[in-house]
């Protein structure tokens, strides 16, 4: 079975984002970019399926600027077999991403799509679910554990009250949560090997998808900052302040 892994290039999670003074967005100039951390977990899961002999091919897809090919190379260095870069500049909304991925799924016929539960830039948490709906496939979101069966999969999910297990028919979409696995670091030989793996370059129009954003961003602002308060010296003083000054206990 083929596994498709969509990966997104985002501002590295260690970078402190700065809102542009003109309120048009977040400053992306000269900022370190990396693969969305949740997507790293998806790549890892897909590669492990291949190593266990359950997947025959792992295809990584990225939708973004030319530099998103670096994100694909990371996925290839981790063990994906080939990449598809759908080149587009500017922001692409989850629905448009899902439409492009649907067209790719129609062509590639994967049995499983594994992707991050959300991207850490727009924090939408939509793409996997939208893709599943457009394909008419089931989904296992916020996955904690995956067990592949015959024609179906059991997915343990992180939910508000604890964990939930669902059984989905294959093909299916799985979106991954933090604790599914710990992604590997690519070794130097694998990074070298990844350079020779093929990346197909496409454009959204190849898939007949209009990626013009439909939500209009009117402004991007900084949230109100909290100020540091006072330091107290003892537990008794802390409780006294909480009780008599703040009135919260």
């Amino acid at each position: 079975m083929k596994v498709l892994v969509p990966v997104k290039r985002v501002i590295d999670y260690n970078v402190k984002v700065r809102v542009k003074p003109d309120q048009t967005g977040v400053d992306l100039a000269n900022v370190k970019m990396s693969m969305n951390p949740f997507d790293e977990i998806s790549v890892e899961e897909a590669v492990r399926l291949k190593e266990k002999g359950k997947a025959t091919e792992v295809i990584a897809v990225s939708i973004g600027p030319q530099q998103a090919s670096e994100t694909l190379r990371t996925a290839l260095a981790m063990g994906a077999d080939r990449g598809i870069l759908v080149k587009t500049d500017g922001e692409v909304e989850p629905l448009a991403v899902a439409k492009i991925l649907k067209a790719i799924c129609d062509a590639e016929q994967p049995t499983l799509v594994i992707t991050g539960k959300q991207a850490i830039d727009d924090d939408s948490n939509q793409t996997g679910q939208m893709l599943a709906a457009l394909l008419g496939w089931p989904q296992g979101t916020f996955a904690h554990k995956l067990e592949l069966g015959d024609g179906s999969a059991q997915i343990e999910r992180e939910i508000d009250g604890g964990l939930q297990t669902v059984e989905v028919k294959l093909p299916a979409v799985m979106t991954v949560d933090l604790r599914l696995n710990e992604p590997r670091y690519a070794s130097l030989p694998n990074i070298m090997k990844a350079k020779k793996k093929p990346i197909d370059e496409k454009s959204p129009s190849d898939y007949g998808v209009d990626v013009t954003p439909r939500l209009k961003t009117l402004k991007v602002t900084e949230p109100e900052k909290r100020k540091a308060g006072v330091k107290v010296k003892t537990v008794a003083e802390l409780l006294d302040k909480l009780k008599n000054e703040a009135g919260v206990i």
Binding site: V17, D121, V220, T221
Partner: peptide, 14 residues
């Protein structure tokens, strides 16, 4: 919120 709440986006739906 976007970027883990480090920025706030005001968006208009179509």
């Amino acid at each position: 919120p976007i970027y883990a709440g480090n920025a706030l986006a005001t968006v208009q739906a179509p």
